[in-house]
Design a protein around this nucleic acid. Structure first.
Lengths: 300, 300
DNA sequence: AAAATGTTTTTTCCCGATAAAAGACATTAC
DNA sequence: GTAATGTCTTTTATCGGGAAAAAACATTTT
């Protein structure tokens, strides 16, 4: 079976949404850039759209014939990459419980369970290992270190070190740096969200990530920037399966972000440090409080 | 061809050295622990030793018949794991020159050049990517970011942050902690090396790594401990192909380590901080001075 | 009965093969 | 002559298979 064509399917679906917006499609290279795929894939998409009579395709002319129907779309689950599928499966097992520290991880078993080849699982585990949750025994199995309180503490220790430094660097950026405009835009989005927090609280995670990544980028240090991947991954999955107090939690965080943004804009190192510390402290508290000390196995 | 038996060959060679020291060999499980391999591999080793009449093997009795000769050993190059072979080849290309930032890395080409399968190369690149020197374009090639001055600065920035914190944690460890004995032992080795620095200066790298790892471990933070892998890798390869001033460099470093150790033992935070900073500063200088700013391609 | 040896099963490591996707080259249209 | 389309080549992503190594199970020895 070798390789699934999820890139094509995903791009096809996204291309369908483009159809709604215009009478005709741009050139092949342009479409490629727009969808983030190669021209080869673009041409496959166009070929199918012609076949299903969505468009009339003749060289440069790509006229839209009809609006796409729900059944024109490929099913969502066929648009995920193998890596995403494996990651989700793995994280579910890890966080849903029954995953005690010290437990062995078996590549073959995982592969069979998810229904993929061992190579993909191996590659996933190698990539995943940088998050510090698993460890390889050479020529042998992987060992699960577990999503424990110790892990959360070690993670937040580094996070705080890095973010304080990045925030200080951010505040020291020259007035004419482009980041200030980015910050303005983010502040606007925060205010918007704050005013509709009752209904839109679940949109916070995504905004949170963009905000912290902007700050981290000011460090101009790849190790700091890359470390945010660990944090983002943990937050993404952890909160996806742990919705307790989500609204309350996010409401507080939005306000802290706004204070943090104001401090950054003041460019006063003392204020930045204080606002940053305050937010990080509550983020740590939130994370820690969701990890019961005597973590027990629970059915998924 | 699937898998080379380098584990067996390497363990076999190490087992030969054991033969010199005693008249007979211990039990199979004991040998396994000693050599760090499974009993399956131990039995293969014993079988061959019997065949080449190095030992007489009858169940529990494994009597040494003769001393191993040079020709009994497997050639060194057959004892390396594929991962080591790939890493070495790759690092040679990277550091020997001709590896400009922005250059594309081609899995297939690399695999052909080294004479291994693509899977192994892919796995290596994924593992290697955490060092921050390469980056993956999804569904496409890898991009080399290059061993540049910027890289060295970003690396040392984190290193300094982490080591200062670890050193402070180290000094705060209780009097009865086992680390003080480890430190004593390391100090002894440093003094030994210092007194024979003229001839043994090339043994410093290994001591250096053990010393810094001991300190980093005091942080009790897996991210800090793991980060030392990046530093160790860079130092290992970089200095392996850049021997300028090696003796002078190491002589200074040994003295700095001794001062650093004394500061740790004083448990005075101010002294620790000062000694640590001093050593890190000169380490950074050394690394930076070996990276010419306008780095040019040079034949290997 | 504890610990070794003997035997069998499972898992890891690595390759070659193949479809998907990207990329390069050749040709045509504007 | 620039930028598109058309065609061909190369590379990546993934699988299944097979030897090496580990691990599990069964049997013997002390």
């Amino acid at each position: 079976m070798s390789k699934s064509n999820n890139v094509y399917k995903d791009a096809y679906n996204r291309c369908l949404r483009l159809l709604d917006e215009s009478r005709s499609l741009p050139s092949e290279p342009e479409l490629g850039t727009l969808l983030g795929v190669s021209r080869t894939t673009v041409r496959s998409i166009l070929a199918r759209m012609e076949e299903t009579e969505l468009i009339d395709w003749n060289k440069r002319n790509k006229t839209v014939l009809r609006a796409p129907q729900p059944e024109d779309f490929f099913p969502e689950e066929e648009t995920d990459s193998l890596a995403e599928i494996i990651e989700r499966s793995f994280m579910r097992r890890l966080l849903a419980g029954g995953a005690e520290a010290g437990m062995q991880i078996n590549e073959l078993e995982l592969a069979r369970e998810i229904g993929v080849g061992t190579t993909s699982v191996r590659e996933f585990l190698i990539r995943f290992s940088r998050f510090g949750l698993i460890e390889k025994r050479r020529n042998s199995h992987w060992v699960l270190k577990g999503f424990t309180r110790a892990f959360a503490l070690e993670l937040t220790e580094i996070r705080e070190m890095f973010e304080l430094r990045s925030a200080a660097a951010f505040a020291a950026l020259p007035e004419d740096s482009a980041v200030w405009a980015d910050l303005d835009r983010l502040e606007g989005e925060h205010r918007q969200l704050a005013s509709q927090i009752a209904t839109r609280f679940n949109e916070f995670s995504e905004l949170d990530e963009r905000f912290h990544r902007l700050i981290h980028r000011a460090s101009h240090n790849r190790f700091i920037v890359d470390f945010y991947d660990v944090i983002a991954m943990i937050f993404h999955y952890h909160y996806q399966w742990n919705k307790a107090e989500e609204r309350q939690r996010n409401e507080v965080a939005v306000q802290e972000h706004l204070a943090y943004i104001a401090a950054l804009r003041s460019r006063d190192p003392g204020k930045v440090d204080a606002a940053c510390r305050k937010h990080l402290k509550s983020a740590r508290q939130t994370l820690l409080s969701s990890i019961p000390e005597g973590r027990q196995a629970q059915p998924a």
